[in-house]
Amino acid sequence: MSMHLTNLGRVDQFAPALSIPLVAGFVRTGFPSPADDYLEGELDLVDHLIQHPSATYFLRAKGTSMEGVGIYDGDLLIVDRSVEPRPGHIVIMSVDGELTCKKLSTIGNRPYLVAANPEFRPIPLFGRECQVWGVVTHNIHSLAPGFSV
């Protein structure tokens, strides 16, 4: 299955909010533009990224099978167990006792897990022992060399 996952824990829904400054406006990814000179407010990343704290946990991804959708080795995945998985969702699933992260799909009328890297073949789910552990709602990865999340 080629993507190994490390469970990092659940969201502490009783932890005090940690607010980080949110700069007003947007940043252009093309030509530079003068930035707005004021803050829009404070941003609590838990409020922003996690809809169901009691059903959410974090995993660390390991492997290359999901690079095509921007999930890289070492990325931090936010997983919500309360989201009903549908085709097209990135899911955490146990298949025959092995945890993996793949896109839930159908080929013909049968369910499959599909990697986002053409080097990996689709995994048929029909006739296998499967259990969905949740839907990946967000992915966090570092863009700074040598910096890990």
Rank of each mutant, 00 (worst) to 15 (best):
E42T: 10
F14P: 00
K102F: 11
W133T: 00
D12A: 07
V46S: 11
V132N: 09
G134T: 08
L43F: 12
R60F: 01
M93L: 06
E84L: 15
V136N: 07
L125N: 05
G97T: 10
L77Q: 08
S148K: 15
I92A: 07
G97N: 00
I20R: 13
W133E: 09
L77G: 10
A17H: 12
V79I: 10
I78H: 02
I71V: 11
T64F: 02
D96Q: 04
Y72E: 12
I78S: 06
P145I: 04
V23C: 07
G41D: 03
G146F: 01
P85M: 01
S33H: 11
F31P: 02
I90Q: 09
K103D: 03
G146I: 09
P53K: 04
A144F: 03
L104N: 05
A115F: 06
G134M: 06
A144T: 13
R28C: 14
G63I: 00
N7A: 10
S19W: 11
H138S: 13
D37P: 00
T29N: 13
R60C: 01
L39S: 09
P85F: 05
A144R: 14
S105A: 15
E42R: 08
E42A: 05
V135Y: 12
L77N: 10
L76D: 01
Q131K: 15
I123C: 00
F26M: 12
L99I: 03
S54Y: 05
K62M: 10
V114F: 04
D73S: 08
K103R: 15
G108R: 06
P122D: 07
D36P: 01
Y57R: 04
G74N: 13
V23W: 10
L76W: 09
V135Q: 12
G134N: 03
L76P: 02
F31V: 05
H52M: 01
V132T: 15
P124Q: 07
T137R: 13
N7Y: 12
R86C: 00
D12L: 06
P32H: 09
D37M: 05
Q13D: 13
N139H: 06
F14M: 13
P111S: 00
T106E: 14
F31H: 14
G25W: 06
P118Y: 00
S54D: 12
D36Q: 15
D75T: 04
F26T: 15
D96Y: 05
N117Y: 05
T56I: 03
S19T: 12
L39I: 13
S2K: 06
H89F: 08
D12P: 02
L22E: 14
G25P: 05
Y112W: 06
G70C: 10
G127R: 08
L104E: 00
C130P: 02
L43Y: 11
V91W: 07
V23T: 03
A15S: 12
T6A: 11
M93N: 09
N117C: 00
E84N: 13
A35E: 14
L45M: 15
G68I: 04
G134S: 07
I78Y: 05
L45W: 08
E42N: 11
R60I: 03
R28L: 13
M93P: 01
L22V: 02
L59D: 03
H89L: 00
T64Y: 06
T56P: 01
I140W: 06
T137E: 14
G70S: 10
N109V: 14
